[in-house]
């Protein structure tokens, strides 16, 4: 792999400067205010139709830097956004420099000044310019496609995909997509030390129990209630020692870490939390309301 590729990957860690503000007044980075007009604007959504290819891929019409229309695959499994080299050249995403196209028409990192999907616009969107073989193949058999919309675009929206109605609805949110390259680099660097990443799961509130893993060969999955503090929120809810917690707040509790994780994602103490238990082989649905406490 030529060294020049390295210099193209590196800028990715600098990029991802978010600018939703143009065309989307009063949301983006702004804190929501109680002002009614603004609240209404913040709820603004854009609905665009999409086309489903015979291969079951969804594609949407876009404008790149005001040029187009260009048809892009909408791919929530893609971590980045990708533009074909021809469209990239036409829309001025890349200049016709002396740089030779590498493997698969790879032109490297670039920025799209403005990507429009219907009325939704993202400015300064980092993209990779390359001719992806799968995009090429789909273009040959269905319709000309010029790239892929990935996480760096859709992470700026609350997006709803309705395959039946064939619509994509986008509602702008204040979110800065994390930088893929830097997290991967961090992971790579981490590899040398092989020290696992650690995260302490901090439950919200005082519940009043200790829990334990099931034996490895248990026929069911869940977390065993090992002890219950008399008079606590858990006791008040009717949980008993020996019960098996199978889900908490709609999250599976396969192991103790899952239970801690679910309890750490509760909004605040005082929130009623649905819990599913197995007692004597029967499913039980109870509500625990954790109290403030440590």
């Amino acid at each position: 792999m030529p060294t020049s590729l390295c210099s193209r990957i590196a800028p990715l860690s600098l990029g991802l400067i978010l600018s939703l503000s143009l065309g989307l007044p009063s949301h983006g980075h702004d804190e929501p205010t109680p002002n009614q007009n603004q609240a209404q604007e913040a709820k603004q959504t854009f609905t665009v139709p999409f086309v489903l290819l015979g291969s079951n891929h969804m594609v949407i019409q876009t404008k790149i830097n005001g040029k187009g229309p260009y048809w892009l695959l909408y791919d929530v499994g893609a971590p980045i956004t990708l533009i074909g080299s021809k469209a990239g050249m036409e829309a001025g995403v890349i200049k016709n420099t002396n740089r030779p196209a590498l493997f698969m028409g790879m032109r490297g990192e670039a920025k799209v000044d403005r990507l429009e999907v219907g009325e939704a616009k993202v400015e300064n969107l980092p993209v990779i310019v390359m001719d992806h073989p799968a995009v090429k193949a789909l273009s040959t058999f269905f319709r000309p496609l010029q790239g892929i919309i990935g996480y760096t675009f859709f992470a700026r929206y609350r997006s709803t995909i309705d395959y039946q109605a064939k619509t994509l609805t986008l509602e702008p949110i204040a979110n800065e997509p994390k930088n893929l390259a830097s997290t991967i680099e961090a992971r790579m660097t981490l590899g040398s030390s092989r020290k696992p990443l650690e995260r302490v799961l901090n439950p919200v509130g005082a519940w009043g129990w200790t829990v334990a893993e099931l034996e490895d060969d248990a026929p069911v999955q869940g977390v065993k209630v090992a002890s219950v503090v008399p008079g606590s929120a858990v006791a008040e809810a009717g949980v008993q020692v020996g019960d098996l917690v199978t889900s908490l707040d709609g999250r599976w509790t396969i192991d103790v870490a899952d239970l801690y994780e679910a309890a750490s994602r509760i909004a605040a103490p005082g929130t009623p939390v649905a819990v599913e238990l197995l007692r004597d082989g029967k499913t039980l649905r109870l509500t625990i309301t954790p109290r403030p406490g440590l």
């Binding site: 992971r187 790579m188 981490l190 590899g191 040398s192 092989r194 020290k195 696992p196 990443l197 650690e198 995260r199 302490v200 799961l201 901090n202 439950p203 005082a206 503090v229 103790v256 870490a257 801690y260 994780e261 750490s264 103490p269 005082g270 109290r291 403030p292 406490g293 440590l294």
Partner: peptide
């Protein structure tokens, strides 16, 4: 390069006290 270990999830410790709202 060595496979990256998966993230480790750890339990927080408890003090056993309740607080006023």
């Amino acid at each position: 390069t060595g496979k990256q270990p998966e993230e480790k999830r750890l339990e927080r410790g408890s003090l056993g006290l309740e607080l006023a709202d």
